[in-house]
Write a protein that binds this DNA or RNA. Structure first.
Lengths: 241, 241
DNA sequence: GGTCCGCCAATCCTATAGGATATTTGATCC
DNA sequence: GGATCAAATATCCTATAGGATTGGCGGACC
């Protein structure tokens, strides 16, 4: 057959891939989501993004379309579409006739800009979350609370989920999407330095969660602001420029 | 020849297209910019985005890859890359095996979310612009001030430039990019209703400009907040849902 | 010994052909 | 007359081949 089925990524020709895609989406986004086998491009997109976030593709690394196509067992077209989307999200950059490369690691100026933005948006999101968060999300929030994360990746996932839930809690999709896009870069930056799991961060998280559960908007905003400021202080130490 | 040169978009095979691309970029971004013929995909991207913003492609309209390829005289690949980038920016959406379509017109909820976001970010940007805007941008700001725009498009361009300069003035690229991305949607929404050129908006702009020129951060923030609130009121009237 | 020029490999970019799918249209049946 | 099913069309998705360009490498020249 023309479609290599060596365990990488399979096109939507058979029935099995479709089912697996359905399971994947429904498992990740909850049962209320429509079944949408969004195509190979999106699959490849997630794969590459995961590789970037796990530092399997470190910052400032060349990414060859040919290599990816061979490695994933798909044609170049979906690779190109995925890379174009990643470029639009700032995770890779394209130089004409030279190819794609993962974005270089954040420098001091970019870190400052990123946290200025977070400090502007995320406390507001926490305030609104305290006012209007749905009960279901509130319960999910409890799941990322007290449990001590064993590994570095475990903490990172928990942190991502924590901030995502609060951003969504405000009910504003634009805010949630913007913060999610930014959080990816924070994740990469933090992973670059394999920073120790900060016990403080967990306490700060719990403070925010407590305020939101108590529907105390002002306290939630303040706690989130404090968390981001402290987080900024912890990350800033890793950089000198 | 394989490359149709019927006046649409030309590949980078000859010398003339390269020169024209150079002239275009240098004319738009100033003489200090490196020459970067970024490829067909970006050219196509700008073209489609322009067509969407000019309502030549109205909201919720099917966009065929084949048709675009024929119309622009290029292959399908750059069209796909451009559409992927547009999708990442929320201007088109893709449905598997059905094709691309321009995003539907904003509904009331989206308008609310968008202006909540703007109200959160843009006054802050104005404050920072008043504190730190470069002298060159300050002069450019004067150019979009008093002059009465004759046409609807003229006002729209002026408005876009006004908000772009202030967003850039704060020196935070993330803020500037986010606001630019959002402003496109505001532009489309406004164009849909061919709203009359609001004389008020010009006065509000002038108030912001005056505050920034006077380096009065608090006044700039307040003026921008007022401008956005009024702008929201003007646009909200067009929608019922 | 340093610098410049031409060649080679790797990569990207474009174009075309073929298979698969969703939507539409028309005819048939109830 | 309305609804249902099937064929046809238009479109997308994938794969492969060929042309064009960049960056690095070795040799020649000053």
């Amino acid at each position: 057959m023309l479609y290599p089925v060596n365990g990488k990524i399979q096109p939507f020709c058979g029935k099995v891939p479709v089912m697996s895609a359905l399971e994947a989406t429904s498992a990740k986004q909850g049962p209320s989501q429509i079944a949408r086998p969004s195509g190979l491009a999106e699959e490849v997109y997630r794969r590459i993004r995961a590789d970037i976030m796990s530092l399997k593709l470190p910052p400032d690394t060349r990414v060859s379309v040919d290599s990816l196509a061979r490695e994933l067992g798909v044609s170049q077209t979906p690779i190109r579409e995925a890379l174009s989307m990643l470029e639009a999200n700032g995770l890779v950059s394209k130089k004409h006739f030279t190819g794609y490369a993962t974005a270089p690691r954040m420098d001091r100026a970019q870190l400052d800009e990123l946290f200025e933005f977070r400090l502007l948006v995320e406390p507001h999101a926490a305030r609104k979350a305290a006012e209007a968060m749905a009960q279901s999300d509130m319960e999910s929030l409890g799941a990322v609370s007290g449990a001590h994360a064993p590994s570095h990746d475990g903490f990172a996932d928990m942190d991502t989920e924590f901030h995502k839930l609060i951003a969504q809690g405000g009910g504003n999709h634009l805010i949630a999407d913007s913060l999610a896009r930014l959080h990816i870069h924070v994740h990469i930056f933090r992973s670059c330095f394999r920073s120790e799991i900060a016990e403080e961060a967990v306490h700060e998280h719990d403070a925010v969660i407590a305020a939101i559960r108590g529907r105390d908007a002002a306290a939630a905003e303040a706690a989130m602001r404090r968390h981001i400021e402290r987080s900024y202080g912890r990350l800033r130490d890793f950089i000198r420029d």
